[in-house]
């Protein structure tokens, strides 16, 4: 089953989606409008690139400490939590055990994010990744 559909089948998952490269190519299910999903995709991509940049700085201080490549991030809100793993995101309610379940599914289904994040994100669109990026 597709990751987004699998996530949406869990009670308490408000919305889930997938984005690529610039964050302007996306698909989603759940309680978002197209415009909100576009904004969420751009937000998730920006944060993902930001934490990846940070992990490269950590790596320059101490190599191979188990941080790189970053797999994702979580923002815990008062009632809603946003989880991002690879190029997938999920908005979930703060319910008992839901966050752990969602993270387990996302980590298992998305798999380990490869080292070159931009190539990884762009590859989802197909085409000549190198030519488009550099």
């Amino acid at each position: 089953m597709h990751i987004v559909k699998q996530l949406m089948a869990i009670p308490g998952v408000v919305a889930a989606g997938e984005y690529a490269y610039r964050g302007d190519r996306f698909s989603y299910e759940g309680a978002l409008t197209d415009e909100f999903a576009r904004m969420a995709s751009i937000l998730c991509r920006a944060n993902t690139l930001s934490v990846n940049m940070q992990s490269e700085i950590f790596d320059s201080f101490a190599e191979n400490i188990g941080c790189r490549p970053v797999q994702g991030w979580i923002v815990r809100g008062s009632q809603i939590t946003i989880c991002a793993v690879g190029n997938y995101f999920a908005f979930i309610e703060n319910r008992d055990e839901l966050l752990n379940d969602v993270m387990t599914i996302m980590r298992a289904k998305v798999g380990d994010v490869q080292d070159d994040l931009l190539v990884n994100l762009y590859a989802r669109l197909g085409g000549d990744t190198k030519e488009a990026l550099y």
Binding site: R68, I74, R76
Partner: peptide, 20 residues
């Protein structure tokens, strides 16, 4: 922007690395 609530105040942040 969205009129949705439930995010503020934030209750934390996590960065998920490869091993930790």
């Amino acid at each position: 922007l969205t009129g949705q609530s439930g995010f503020q105040p934030l209750k934390g942040f996590s960065m998920v690395g490869l091993e930790w």
